[in-house]
Amino acid sequence: MIQHLVDGILTGSIISLGAIGLTLIMHMLRFANFSYAELLGIGAYSALVFDRLLAALIPFMHEKIGPLSLTWTLSVSVVLAMVVTGASAVVLDKLVFKRIRENAGPLSMVFASFGVALILRNIITLAFGHRAQLYSPDIAFAIVVSFDPLLLIKPDQVFVLGAALVLMLMLHVVLTRTTFGYSHRAVAENPDLAQVSGVRLSRMVVSVWVLGGGLSAAAGVFYGLTNQISPHLGHNFVLPVFAATIVGGIGSVYGAVLGGFIVGIASGLSLMILPSGYTPAMPFLIIIAVMLLRPHGLFGEELHR
């Protein structure tokens, strides 16, 4: 019980990070972006490339930090990967979504996002192959926190939870304490009114892609650190991330954080009552339950168009 709960919180922190980016993008651009989760893959793979590069250039930094399997090179790579992924999100918007946004409706955007997801996933497969990649081939052993009830936690997971919380806190400060944050929220609420008040819409769109891309890159690397990286990484997260976003309510950052933890914990706990073959249905069940009780999500407001 306690182990499932703790595992759920740890998985939930990664889902939350992904869901924050998605909820921001969905709120501002008003379409369900199914290619968003592929950004996790881009993040994870670009960190892998940077990690290998840095390890070759400055070998003494390729040392593990304390009990973590995270190396100094990888921690630098995370930041670089966040930048690269944010930039690729902006490029994707310029190449595909911006053009469609100007000429067609939201439904075309949704279909385009499916296409973009397929293309991204296959580019990753072409470049890196199907096989699973690892940041560190060594297996990081879990630490026994308590024997009865048995509770095992990996240092990496604690680090991931902490790092995710720090990132969320930073985002919170940016959104609530800076002019940028106010402009951002204004555009999401009402783009026309925000423009009248002197907010540059195009700049806000770029910034939300950078934010979303950066957060999802972090989520991708954190996932790769505690599990493994494969071209299907993004695809595997589509459902949990969407579930978290919908549960939390589209547009609500705090809802997305909570939604991520709810989905993570529920998937972990569901094993106690359901056979493991049925656990993938859990995110769907949560979506249905929330939609029935609160159609706009836990923290969501009705979108005014």
Binding site: D7, L150, H232, L271, S276, T279
Partner: peptide
């Protein structure tokens, strides 16, 4: 006997169950 589904983000829960 524990079923392992394809393409799951995490197998932690299944493994914990097996470990127990």
């Amino acid at each position: 006997q524990i079923a392992i589904n394809d393409d799951q983000p995490s197998y932690r829960a299944e493994v914990t169950q097996a470990l127990a």
